[in-house]
Amino acid sequence: MTIRNWIKQQESLGKPTFSYRDVKVNFSDMPEQHIMNELYRLSRQKIIQSVYKSFYTVIPIQYSVRGIVPPTYYIDQLMEYLAKPYYISLLSAAEIHGAAHQRPQRFSVTTLRPVVTTSARKNNLIVWNYRKDIPENLLCSKNSETGIIHYSSAELTAVDLVQFEHQVGGLSVAATVLSELVETIDFSKNSNTLFQTASLTSIQRLGYILDYILEETKQAEMLYQQLCLLNKKLGYTPLAHCLPIRGNKRNNKWKIIINQTIEIDDI
């Protein structure tokens, strides 16, 4: 059997991804250089795509014209290969929840350190983000073309958009996405885990945006009541950490120093 035929056989068995190690095990008598040359040739022919070092996905017919496979096709298998928990996050998660106005140019994945290293030449579609822990009960799952994918709940997505706003283009972008996402949010769910996962300053900034920028007072009040129930003591924090804070107005409810103007795009 050739490597090409083996790959097609694996795909027919519902295994559209594989590693170099898998090939080496199944072709143990074949010289390594020959294996590498064959995988390179199949990649050039757009039969397979290397999406991470020593990890490949078959390019299904629906993606053969562009020769680029969307990360939802292989992300769960890749993270299993890396032995890392993960969730699809930020704008990518918001899009799954239906907030698609700010369509992401890259696919955001949150996982644990150590840092996942791959060159832009190898895969420039995925941007990695990191947490100390992955909050399993704040994740959602759905079927993909090849299995199950995991993504942040609407509540965790909302917090992440504010906490990691530098990765989505700033607070104005985050607030625009929140304006679409807000109808699916319920801050009464898993609030303990949410507040343990997110920084308190991110909760404050999120609450302020919901309350005074988006005028979503019901959602903002629900978040504020959860803070009160958990006896969280708020200290003043700037809306934008990278901008000066002297001489700016302060919001007493959320303890926010208003040192940035947030503008929402028309939806």
Rank of each mutant, 00 (worst) to 15 (best):
Y56R: 01
L78I: 03
E80P: 01
P60K: 06
E80M: 11
Q62C: 09
F55R: 03
L90I: 09
Y86I: 09
T57G: 03
Q77E: 14
V51I: 13
S89D: 15
V69D: 10
I61Q: 13
I88G: 06
P85G: 13
T57W: 01
I88Q: 06
Y56K: 01
V69W: 03
Y52H: 08
Y86C: 09
Y52Q: 01
Q62Y: 06
S89V: 07
P85Y: 10
I61G: 07
I88P: 01
I68V: 14
L91V: 04
L78Q: 05
V58K: 02
K53D: 07
V65L: 14
P70W: 02
L78D: 05
Q77F: 05
Q49I: 00
T57Y: 01
K53S: 06
L91F: 02
V65S: 13
P71F: 05
I61P: 00
Q62E: 15
G67V: 03
D76V: 05
I68S: 13
A83G: 12
G67K: 03
D76W: 04
Y52A: 01
Q49C: 02
K53Y: 00
Q62N: 12
L91T: 05
Y86A: 09
V51Q: 03
T57L: 02
Y73H: 14
Y74K: 07
Y73R: 07
P85T: 08
I68L: 15
L78G: 10
Y74H: 12
V58C: 05
P85H: 06
E80D: 15
T57V: 06
A83F: 10
I59D: 03
P85K: 07
Y74A: 14
T57M: 01
G67S: 05
S50W: 00
G67T: 02
Y63H: 11
S54N: 05
I75D: 10
Y56D: 04
I59V: 12
Y86N: 12
I88T: 01
M79T: 11
S50T: 05
Y74P: 03
D76M: 07
E80K: 14
V51F: 00
Q49S: 08
I61C: 05
V58G: 03
Y87I: 06
M79S: 13
S89P: 09
K84R: 14
A83W: 03
I88H: 07
A83H: 14
V65G: 09
Y52R: 01
